[in-house]
């Protein structure tokens, strides 16, 4: 096997043009190979030391867009002030991925490009209308995440293209987001189902606009359709409507983690809880990241606002 540490982004793209596959955190690639899912590629190019892929621009540019480098770790995103302020739903998702070790080496670029329907960053990004920036020796392009995922492990990106950044439109006023997932334990967990919501509120507290995306109920992360139905509704009613739409539109499988019937039901519960949390945040309430812990969803403890500590307060 050939393993090259890229010196520059251009160097990495050249190696990818000649067939190398990129590696950053390696949390999917190596685990997948060990489980026999897919053998390790013959040629790897390490991109984890490229500073250009490791920064977060929290909306300082002209259009106020938030740009997250592909090699930014989940732990960095989960603790980043601008992300928590502007797109807390993404921070919710990033703070739930795997274990502390996974979050410290695993990257947002890897999570997105691995295209698992159970990924925790996908639903918040889709709900936020995010796009990925991919680059190759042929140039670069922006691609809406809605157009990125084709199926489990499959994307619409060519094999020589490298994900370099994620672009998130700056949310407007009275707009916020949340991501919640159904989980059976507090760490080392994968979403049974999940839901990300981004909601804008009108001055009277009703929903002005909403977008909701669902985790692990279809071959890809899917957006809930027909959300114009909830415009003008108060949060409680909107959440109930979203729950119904989410359950109706999900196409879950039955596997070891859950039956399709249970997933179809619980994705509605998660969607409802995500919408309610997003509405409360949009109204100015602070709900600590991740919502799962602060609201006691899944295996979290009620009122436990601190992620990654044991019941005795020991940091993990």
């Amino acid at each position: 096997m050939q393993f090259v540490i890229a010196e520059t982004l251009e160097h990495a793209l050249e190696l990818m043009a000649s067939g190398s596959r990129p590696i950053a955190g390696g949390t999917d690639l190596v685990v997948g190979a060990r489980q026999g899912k897919e053998p390790l590629p013959d040629a790897l190019v390490a991109i984890d030391r490229l500073g250009v892929l490791a920064s977060i621009d929290g909306g300082t540019g002209e259009d106020g867009e938030i740009v997250i480098g592909a090699c930014v770790s989940h732990a960095t995103i989960a603790g980043h002030g601008d992300i928590i302020d502007l797109v807390p739903g993404l921070a919710d998702g990033s703070s739930l991925v795997g274990s502390p070790a996974t979050r410290h080496v695993g990257t947002i670029g890897g999570n997105i490009m691995n295209a698992s329907p159970a990924m925790d960053t996908g639903a918040p990004l889709l709900a936020a209308g995010a796009a990925v920036e991919v680059a190759s020796t042929r140039g670069s392009r922006l691609l809406a995440v809605a157009d990125l995922w084709l199926g489990p492990g499959q994307t619409s990106v060519d094999s020589d293209e490298l994900c370099v950044a994620v672009h998130i439109p700056r949310p407007g006023p009275r707009t916020s987001s949340a991501y919640v997932r159904l989980e059976y334990r507090r760490t080392m967990e994968i979403a049974v189902v999940g839901a990300g919501a981004q909601v804008s509120l009108s001055d009277d507290g009703s929903v002005a606009s909403a977008s909701v995306a669902l985790t692990a109920v279809a071959p890809v992360i899917i957006a809930v359709q027909g959300l114009s139905e909830v415009v003008g509704l108060q949060p409680g009613e909107a959440a109930r409507t979203v729950a119904r739409l989410a359950s109706e539109q999900s196409r879950p499988i039955s596997d070891l983690r859950a039956s399709d019937r249970y997933r179809r039901h619980t994705v509605g519960v998660m969607a409802s809880r995500a919408v309610l949390a997003a509405c409360r945040r949009a109204a100015g309430e602070e709900i600590a990241v991740p919502v799962n812990r602060s609201e006691g969803i899944g295996a979290g403890y009620p009122g436990d606002a601190v992620a990654n500590t044991t019941a005795d307060g020991v940091e993990l």
Binding site: R185, T187, I190, L256, R257, T310, A311, D312
Partner: peptide, 27 residues
């Protein structure tokens, strides 16, 4: 442990065989 109808284990690994973790430990 979950079996298929031929008697083979379907979750012989730590992803699908869910141990409790220290983060789940109550007082």
């Amino acid at each position: 442990t979950v079996y298929d109808d031929r008697g083979n284990q379907m979750n012989p690994g730590l992803l699908e065989y869910k141990l409790q973790t220290i983060a789940d430990a109550p007082p």
